[in-house]
Design a protein around this nucleic acid. Structure first.
Lengths: 337, 337
DNA sequence: TTGTAAGCGTTATCAC
DNA sequence: GTGATAACGCTTACAA
């Protein structure tokens, strides 16, 4: 089949162990032989068999990544970050898509557990108990979710929400609606809680929780009419996709954004600057989340007692675009007329 | 460390080979022992070590996927299709992102060659010679690219272009511009050639080739001003992202779409129905491309002499949205006024 | 039907 | 510094 260490050994006139050493720990072999072995290995196109190596070392040089939906730009960005960082560290990435189905997360993790050195679980929808159980069976780190003391790349939603709300309040908005994501979503819970914290700090501020919607464009479309009747002058969406849905449906309903209603998204995905009106959004550099996840995982894989570290910039940033503007009450509109 | 076949054998009171057989070929073992072995295996949470199995069978139950950019919705969709189909067939997917760098494709393929049963190479930018070379070193199939007789999921660009052009011509457009993608892109070559074929069929039709641009939104933004001065009343973009860029820049320049210029994208990604104006686009079901790729690869892996098969619906479909409309010459505008 | 034993290609542990 | 040799966990003839 393929060229093995045995073949290289024979050609180079050394033993198999010398071949192995020449590649793995070059210092343990004499410069002369090392050069000869490396040369013939390269010449024969020899590459160590990862399965054989993994069998004895217990290492696979591969990490797993589980995301809810590869087509969602949020996870696509994280995946890109994970992939790039892993590759830089000499690791491969096996990726799995749970199709937003919480029960699959457990399955997927278990199925890939034996063939990876560790798993990056991104935005899992499964309950804490399940995640804790999975963490017992393999090295696991979380992105965009916290669970017990499992190492995690945490996203400080409160800071982001505070920026978004501060922006809206500065524009004069006092009644603000929230179009939530899936009830099982940790982000959604965190974002709603953050909104409540911020709202509670200002007696004049009224928060209207419109409930849970699909985390896609369709969710925003479904929620738009509720926003209209809620009487809110501004709305914060669970994520940018939902905000796109809002934008679309509000336009079809003849409601002007931002003149009648201001819309803020969360995540600040690339597409947000290209809609019309373009979308005001708070987001973190998602690719960095992926990178940070890999760093965390590799630290953990190498020494499970290492405390979580965060060297990356994972802070929210508000980008104001066309979808938000000052409150226009009918009185205000009359005043300007 | 982990529970092995040896452990199960001891507990179940059988030999290691019986454990192996009970799981791999259940018919070769007596129903009674089979039940007992399977039961204890499940009870102990035994899962065969893939490295050990792979070492002897030469199979990894894993396929590789190489794409130019995971964040590009086009490839995200393909990746999703690959992942879902592979999983259904009991395969894992290791994914790599070449960052649109042709030279990385070769490296990536070579690096993962030994740890996968085959590779799906999607929209490679590398020259034919390189791809042919890689195909010698591992089982390889192509998506959205053809190269010699390497099995490939081909996309019939001519059909799609014909639909797009037919639509524009029906609206009265006679001078149509093309904003191309990377010169090294096989799709771009195919699309430009198709446009030329279609244009040659109609003497009244004038095709203006505006040259190559980045396959991103930025490319469309860069091309928009050229479109304006070209005198064309309609423009076909290399892909939807480029079309978004056109839409954005044309709006900023005060050019109305579709009243002044009609815009057609290619790929019909999800986002296309959400821009304003929404984008007329021709596209194929991209997730199906991924699925088809996996089917093709697995056929190939199982029997390299099998000729390529296409059971999937990979035909283009035109979706007309707000970005295209009838030609408005100044004369026509006066007539309506 | 089941057990024994020989590898798969590497790394790790010893002697030399 | 280098070479035998024993694992690693499994599959698969072959023997019983």
């Amino acid at each position: 089949m393929s060229v093995t260490a045995r073949d290289v050994a024979r050609v180079a006139g050394v033993s198999i162990s010398t071949v192995s050493r020449a590649l793995a720990k070059p210092d343990d072999v004499a410069p002369a032989t090392r050069a000869r072995v490396l040369e013939t290995a390269r010449g024969m196109g020899y590459l160590p068999n990862p399965a054989a190596r993994g069998l004895i070392t217990g290492q696979t040089s591969t990490i797993g990544l589980i995301v809810p939906d590869l087509e969602n730009p949020f996870f696509a960005a994280v995946t890109k970050g994970v992939q790039s960082r892993a590759r830089a560290a000499g690791y491969h990435v096996v990726v799995a898509d749970s199709d937003e189905d919480p029960s699959q997360e457990e399955d997927l993790a278990r199925t890939m557990a034996k063939r990876v050195d560790g798993i990056v679980l991104c935005s899992p929808r499964a309950p804490d108990s399940v995640i804790a159980q999975v963490a017992l069976e393999c090295k696991l780190i979380l992105v965009n979710r916290s669970c017990g003391d499992i190492p995690a790349v945490a996203i400080d939603n409160l800071t982001g929400i505070r920026q978004a709300m501060g922006h809206l309040v500065a524009l004069g908005h006092r009644k603000i609606a929230y179009v939530g994501g899936p009830a099982t979503s940790w982000s959604n819970t965190a974002r709603l809680a953050s909104l409540q914290v911020v709202a509670a700090e200002d007696p004049d501020l009224e928060l209207v929780d419109l409930g849970s919607f699909q985390p896609y464009v369709s969710g925003g479309i479904a929620a738009a009419d509720l926003v209209i009747v809620s009487g809110a002058t501004a709305v914060v969406a669970y994520n940018d996709l939902v905000a796109f849905g809002l934008l679309d449906r509000l336009r079809h309903r003849g409601v002007s954004v931002p003149d009648d209603i201001s819309v803020v998204g969360i995540d600040n995905i690339r597409m947000s600057e290209l809609t019309f009106p373009s979308l005001t959004s708070v987001g973190i550099p998602l690719v960095n989340c992926g990178r940070a996840g890999v760093d965390l995982l590799l630290d953990f894989v190498r020494d499970p007692s290492t405390p979580p570290k965060h060297h990356h910039d994972l802070s929210f940033r508000l980008v104001v675009r066309e979808s938000t503007g000052p409150v226009r009450t009918s009185a205000a509109l009359q005043a300007t007329a």
